[in-house]
Amino acid sequence: MLQYTVKRVLMMVPLLFLVSLGVFALVLLIPGDPAITIAGENATVAEIEATRERLGFNDPVIVQYLGWAGSALTGDLGTSLFSNESVTGAILGRFPVTISVAAAAMTVALLIAVPAGIIAAVHRGRWPDRLATLLASIGISMPNFWVGILLIIVLALMFPIFPAVGYTPITDGVGAWAWGLVLPGITLGTTVAAEITRQLRGSLHDVMQQDYIRTARANGLRGGVIIAKHGLKNAAVPVVTVIGFQVGFLLGGSVIVERVFGLPGLGDLAIRAVLQRDIPMIQGIVVVTALVVMLINLAVDLSYGYLNPKVRQQG
């Protein structure tokens, strides 16, 4: 298992290098010249040139890359072209919000999907399965922003149970923090729940037909234990894969929900950076997001090793 883990971690290094190359190439590929934007509308050619020189845009590409990547490795992702704010600082300020929303959504999703998927798999083809499948289809087809607005209208305005907008940091109290995340969590979680339910239903149903499940039955293990232990552990590999994808989606795709609920998250920051052509900020956000997605994939890979001992051996 240790060897397997080390192998997976080492495999991240070349991947990170490729990501950094891609991110850096953004600067060259993005249309428009940030120097012109920064220097201001009435700037002279000389002023623009001076700005360019100051920002290092005139250096050879390789020098620019090494400079950027070198400081990125030390945790310095540069400075915003507009606010003089450190990119790392801006991202660190926003990241807890996005992570909190993603965690809330995943909690909601798992609370729905695990029971629904199990019920559907065990009663495949009969009414509990049909109901779960129907709900999953509805969950997938409902647009996030619409669910969000609906929830705000009903559960925040008509019946003021939850806050309509805003984010309470966890440092201001775990209860208030969690309470504020309920509606965004449900909004984002329903789609994710539907995906996980579908995957779990299929894979658990297949596992329950296996010979070793019959062995467990023949040895008198209780029905619930057979499903929860012998069934789920084997059915989990494809489900964990989907969960990994969905976490990526939650981190990157929560922009609309952040807007709907007025949450100062990473998505909000990203949109502003793109609109302003704030290149260091865009680069920083992409690198951090890519790193997080890779860490999630690493966690998924490591979970394969736990769930399927054969994988562990093959490395």
Binding site: R222, H230, N234
Partner: peptide, 28 residues
């Protein structure tokens, strides 16, 4: 009833199957 039967299976009566390759849980 299923619960009583579960308590007997594996205790008073048990079964060995044809396929040893697939009859053991690969995850444990």
């Amino acid at each position: 009833p299923r619960r009583k039967l579960e308590a007997i299976r594996g205790d008073d009566i048990s079964m060995i199957f044809q396929e040893p390759m697939t009859s053991l849980n690969p995850a444990f």
